[in-house]
């Protein structure tokens, strides 16, 4: 919002120059990775330069894809329901604690919000014990695994989905709360005067009006769940049902330079869904993180 009075020609040029240089800084590691992933020999040209005339290949992408494809499917099976349910729960909790005003809700709200900042290391051992010893879903739901498309490792995935929903609720609640606070009270009061129950107000007024905030929350939460490694390691480890981050962290673990082509390709394949979501919905993502 600051417009300087002085002659702006050179200054503007300098400003744009700096911004472009900074954009280069943020893009360089990504661009270098992309170039390395499509070179026949990663060492043929400097890391950030495109491959030489005969050096272009998609072999690295094919190799990486075949190693990560199961993980990609698992990640989709994991991230979609986990995102939808934590957003829905967050919207419900925010409605019950913001729009519906009652005395004494502050301590409950503080417990919700503090949940955002909990270091997960403080819950990992109980979490792994709970799913491994007390509620082993793959055994409890054994009857289901005979059905088509279902495998025992989906029990682990379900455990991971429930965990992500639970740990996602604090942040989704906060996102919806900041949104619901700005709703006009008259509108709710008018609906109450008309005799609408809280449930009816939620379904008929709040949910339809929450669509923009659902977009923000779903996008934010989707990237969080998709990108997570820690919970996946603790709940299931490097098993068949593991989401893509687990095999990616092991990919080309031999640190040879040649292996880096596959590593970079793998990194892009695993990141592609979040990159696409980010580029299409960048506005919503920025709003999500700024809250």
């Amino acid at each position: 919002m600051l417009v300087l009075n002085r002659s702006i020609g050179t200054q503007r040029l300098l400003l744009y120059g700096m911004l472009v240089a900074l954009a280069g800084f943020y893009l360089l590691p990504i661009e270098t990775g992309l170039m390395t992933s499509i070179k026949t020999n990663p060492l043929s040209t400097a890391p950030f330069l495109p491959p030489g005339p005969d050096g272009l290949t998609l072999d690295k992408w094919n190799t990486a894809f075949s190693q990560l494809s199961t993980g990609l499917i698992n990640s989709i099976v994991l991230a979609v329901p986990a995102t939808v349910f934590s957003a829905l729960f967050g919207s419900m909790a925010a409605y019950g604690l913001t729009t519906l005003n009652w005395r004494g809700q502050l301590p409950i709200l503080v417990l919700f919000i503090a949940g955002i900042f909990i270091p997960y290391q403080a819950v990992l051992i109980p979490l792994s014990k709970f799913w491994a010893v007390y509620v082993p879903l793959d055994e409890l739901l054994a009857a289901l695994w005979g059905l088509p498309l279902l495998e025992p490792y989906h029990g682990d995935l379900l455990a991971l989905i429930i965990s992500h929903v639970a740990y996602g609720i604090p942040i989704t609640t906060l996102l919806f709360r900041t949104y619901y606070r700005n709703f006009s009270e008259e509108m709710i009061a008018a609906a109450q005067l008309d005799g609408a129950t809280p449930a009816r107000i939620y379904w008929r007024i709040m949910l339809p009006l929450s669509v923009p905030m659902f977009a923000v929350t779903l996008i934010y939460q989707f990237t969080q769940v998709w990108n997570d490694l820690l919970f996946a390691l603790v709940v299931m480890g490097p098993s068949e049902g593991a989401p893509v981050t687990v095999p990616l962290s092991q990919l080309g673990a031999s640190l040879s330079e040649i292996g880096f082509g596959v590593r970079m390709a793998g990194a892009f394949i695993a990141a592609l869904p979040t990159i696409i979501v980010y580029i299409i919905f960048g506005e919503q993502f920025a709003k999500g993180v700024a809250t």
Partner: peptide, 9 residues
Amino acid sequence: LPMSLSFVV
């Protein structure tokens, strides 16, 4: 953009 990427990536 980098913030939307996983630590693993």
